[in-house]
Nucleic acid binder design. Structure first.
Lengths: 144, 144
DNA sequence: TTAGGTGCAAAGAGTTTGCTCGTAT
DNA sequence: ATACGAGCAAACTCTTTGCACCTAA
């Protein structure tokens, strides 16, 4: 079956090579925010015949096409996630690096107002929280 | 006269070399968010006898000592500003790269609440707005 | 058929580091 | 006197790119 990302690629008129299909599948299956090296690792499991240069070229292309979004959570490497309509923000666990997503529609409006007050039209934003898990004796979550 | 940053260095017990004094002065005088290359450029104007490796080592040291804060506004290079008590956020002009600072105490509380709801203790945060100047026929501001 | 994709290795950009010499304390 | 800093160049990490070959459409 075609992966979700692959369908988006076809819609955008991209030539679908075997490598792109594999990368598209890896991205479609990802529920975290992998960096290029991690994508490369997962891709080569499905098909040994992929070079990391192709992964770099592909994520860049997909970002230009609006299919992927590049994130920077510190640590010097870009991380990627499929674009979604409702944008969300990220809370990064400072001990494990795992990422939790959250939304905050109310804030969006407030931020827009702040930008306007400063004489700017808000183009985009970046809100990231860094936190430490509060022990609760609960179940361990999965994540990045 | 000693610069503000130099006094902080001495307080922290750092050995003050000529190079560090120059870099401290440049940092004290900076009203923007320079990257290492820009710091190096400004420092060499005051004293040709400084290598970029020393600038890298110094900003790192000062960051560890809590005197400087490292920022990442995208573009792949770290940018620095002296630490201050009340933290503020940044609005980056997407056309010019200039940075405007703003505060938002109300937000801080809300963010803390969000982290708690997700089961985390808030350690730090990053809020950046990217915007485009709205023309107003006013005076042109200075900045980064 | 051919515009465009791929692999490989080399090149870039930003940053760190080993080594030797220099200097603040 | 000596522990620590500085300069230089090499090394490192992440990412991009030139080139010859390959392949989807």
């Amino acid at each position: 079956m075609d992966s979700r990302i692959e369908r988006l690629c076809v819609e955008r008129g991209l030539k679908m090579t075997g490598q792109r299909r594999v990368i598209a599948r890896v991205l479609s299956d990802a529920e975290d925010h992998p960096d290029v090296e991690e994508l490369y690792r997962r891709a080569t499991i499905l098909d040994r015949n992929i070079s990391i240069a192709t992964v770099y070229r592909t994520v860049r292309l997909l970002e230009e096409k609006g299919i992927l979004e590049r994130r920077d959570f510190g640590g010097g490497r870009a991380r990627y996630e499929p674009s979604e309509q409702g944008h969300h923000h990220h809370l990064i666990d400072v001990e494990t690096g795992k990422v939790v997503e959250f939304e905050d529609a109310e804030h969006e409006r407030a931020l827009q107002a702040i930008a306007q007050r400063l004489g700017f039209e808000l183009v985009s934003q970046r809100l990231e929280l860094f936190g430490r898990r509060i022990p609760t004796g609960g179940r361990k979550p999965d994540g990045d």
